[in-house]
Amino acid sequence: MTAVDFIDLASDTKTRPTAAMRAAMAAADVGDERAHEDPSVNRLLARCAALLGKEAAVFLPSGTMANEIALAVHCRPGDAVLCDATSHLIGFEGGGPAALAGVMIEPIGGRRGIFDAQALRAAIRADAPYAPRQRLVVVEQTSNLGGGAVWPRATLDDVAAVAHAAGLATHMDGARLLNACVASGVAAADHARGYDSVWIDFSKGLGAPGGAVLAGSRAFCDEAFRIKLRWGGAMRQSGIIAAACEYALDHHVERLAEDHAHARRFAESVAGVPGIAIAPGDVETNLVYFDVDAVAGGAAAFVAALQARGVRMVAMGPARVRAVTHLDVDAGAIERAGALVRAFCEEKRQNTL
Score class of each variant (00 low, 15 high):
312 R>S: 09
312 R>D: 05
296 A>P: 00
282 D>R: 12
306 L>N: 03
276 I>C: 05
241 I>G: 09
218 R>S: 14
276 I>D: 01
282 D>M: 12
253 V>M: 00
314 V>H: 08
236 R>D: 13
292 V>I: 00
286 N>P: 02
231 W>K: 11
284 E>N: 04
231 W>D: 11
265 R>Y: 06
242 A>Q: 02
319 A>L: 10
234 A>D: 10
253 V>Q: 03
309 R>G: 09
273 V>W: 07
320 R>H: 12
267 A>Y: 04
296 A>Y: 00
326 H>L: 09
223 E>F: 06
278 I>S: 09
317 G>P: 10
300 A>G: 11
309 R>A: 12
218 R>T: 14
329 V>T: 13
330 D>V: 04
290 F>A: 12
322 R>E: 11
321 V>R: 08
323 A>F: 06
252 H>N: 15
217 S>Y: 07
317 G>Q: 09
232 G>W: 02
254 E>Y: 07
294 A>I: 05
305 A>N: 08
325 T>S: 11
318 P>G: 15
283 V>D: 11
330 D>F: 00
285 T>E: 08
317 G>N: 14
216 G>C: 04
292 V>W: 00
239 G>F: 01
262 H>K: 15
257 A>R: 13
224 A>G: 07
232 G>H: 04
321 V>K: 08
275 G>H: 02
297 G>E: 05
291 D>S: 11
294 A>Q: 06
320 R>T: 12
240 I>V: 14
262 H>E: 08
312 R>Y: 03
231 W>P: 04
253 V>L: 02
310 G>L: 01
260 H>R: 12
303 V>L: 01
295 V>M: 13
268 E>S: 13
325 T>M: 14
311 V>R: 03
223 E>N: 06
246 E>F: 07
263 A>N: 05
329 V>Q: 13
325 T>R: 07
283 V>Y: 09
260 H>W: 06
232 G>R: 06
268 E>Y: 05
258 E>K: 13
279 A>E: 15
242 A>K: 03
313 M>S: 05
